[in-house]
Design a protein around this nucleic acid. Structure first.
Lengths: 140, 140
DNA sequence: TTGCGTGCAAAGGTTTTGCATGGCA
DNA sequence: TGCCATGCAAAACCTTTGCACGCAA
């Protein structure tokens, strides 16, 4: 699940603490920068991007990419890489922009299907389903 | 499936012709710009972006977004919005970057599941499955 | 001491926008 | 003629990179 960081810097600890504190919420690199901008521990944006990239490699956080031009989202998993409720899928509403977390065995099974039938190893952490959410469907 | 274009300009026709000529291949906005750069019908890049956006709204072409920073891909569907072999899914290999077209009933069924069980209307034209393709799996 | 991490600034690439001009209906 | 589309340039946006300095081990 990627390389280990060799050094353990203050900045790395601060970012980890922040990610852990927001729990399962999705935050952007800009959110992290903003959080540390006026605090006691200011941090360069290069450091934020580089640490986030590293944490993704280590499997500590997930990264989700949506429309080009909109910032990537990061989500804390935990140092063990263990996700309690099994694989988590994400649905993004094209109308209101809401990101829905979904724990569903049937969805999880398509990973197996893709692999056995098409030889494709699905990465649920990167895959996002686009569509229209329930609330927006009922609105129109 | 979105608004109709009010005017029918030469540029619009040129872009449509080009999209149709490359068929199901995926091309970027930059590809379109490049194709018309040194030809007899030069075209501003704003026009390319604006027409592509409009054609997506009209349902004439599909747009796929991958990692932020990498360009979006466009794919011709046809003026009727009809796709011969049913819904087409896309898998993108995170290792080699290959984009795989996939026509699969089982995948199509997850759309129904998402709707009936989760109230989510999947948009297969925007959804991309990320993972590792067969060739790359066997390589390692 | 070694060399990785940080920070600043600048560049990179894609996409959007302001505004005057041109062209379709 | 009226209004939309075009084109150029510049901006906006997120992200990456070069380089010197600082800090962890």
């Amino acid at each position: 699940m990627g390389e280990r960081s060799k050094y353990n810097t203050k900045q790395r600890e601060y970012i980890l603490d922040y990610l852990e504190s927001v729990g399962g919420d999705h935050i952007t690199a800009a959110d992290v920068c903003e959080h540390f901008r006026s605090g006691a521990n200011p941090m360069g944006q290069s450091t934020v991007y580089r640490q986030l990239e590293r944490l993704v490699d280590e499997g500590v956080i997930n990264k989700y990419t949506f429309d080009a031009g909109s910032p990537a989202c990061f989500e804390y998993i935990g140092k063990t890489g263990h996700v309690k409720d099994g694989v988590c899928f994400h649905c993004k509403c094209e109308s209101c922009g809401t990101l829905i977390h979904m724990h569903c065995d049937e969805l999880a099974s398509i990973g197996g299907h893709l692999y056995s039938e098409h030889g494709f190893s699905l990465d649920p952490r990167r895959t996002v389903f686009y569509g229209i959410c329930k609330a927006c469907s009922e609105k129109e």
